[in-house]
Amino acid sequence: MPVFTPASGAVLKTETRLFTREPGTLFWVLVFPPLLLIAFGLIPGYREPDAALGGLRAIDVYVPSTVMVALITASLQAMPAALTGYRERGILRRMRTTPARPADLLVAQMVLHLAAALLAALLVLVLGNLVYDVALPQNWLAYAVTLALAAVASLAMGAVITSVARTAKAATAIGMSVFFPAMFAAGIYVPVQVLPETLRQIVELTPFGATAQALSQAATGSWPAWDHLAALGLWGVVLMATAARWFRWE
């Protein structure tokens, strides 16, 4: 069985069209993160160099955090709600009676949410640079690799939510309860860099804490510390295995 069939293409095309008809998802994934960055920058103190941040401005460290907001909203909230809805309403089941693979539908949804989050990331980076003069990532390759690992881990976390939630309502509830800790780990409330030592070390072990540190490091031109990347990779593998183990078509 080939990995990509004409039906996979048709499903992806259709799901892309349907994705553009979801104004809510489009707003929260594509528009909200850039708006958040703009709002942060309007706070005067955030545009001043801060000794606690090693001379960086708060707005500089908020760029990677805001990039992660897009990732978190897309993979922990939008995607599980969409997929559990497809399962709950028998859409996957109906598709199971055809030669097409319902897995194509899952893959299409993951690809679309990933693409939207990456587009939002790009918007945040460009806006940060144009509006607040935040330097673009110095090491693009390191930034891209980190972002790719982070995307895999966070989509896998969304897939776990999809697997354990029986209904779309439950998925939204779980998504919400993971959302705030994830935002904290991403440094949206307090930059990860200024957390007390022990707390910071714990946060760095979580997928989004590790991402926050790795992205900040890649932004300054160096390769992120290997332990952050290793943590991300490990999370991705474990979460994907968990999702695959518990997933139900009906």
Partner: peptide, 12 residues
């Protein structure tokens, strides 16, 4: 197949 109960994507 026509199932007794199923749905499609709402905006399709």
């Amino acid at each position: 197949v026509q199932l007794q109960e199923s749905e499609l994507q709402a905006k399709l």
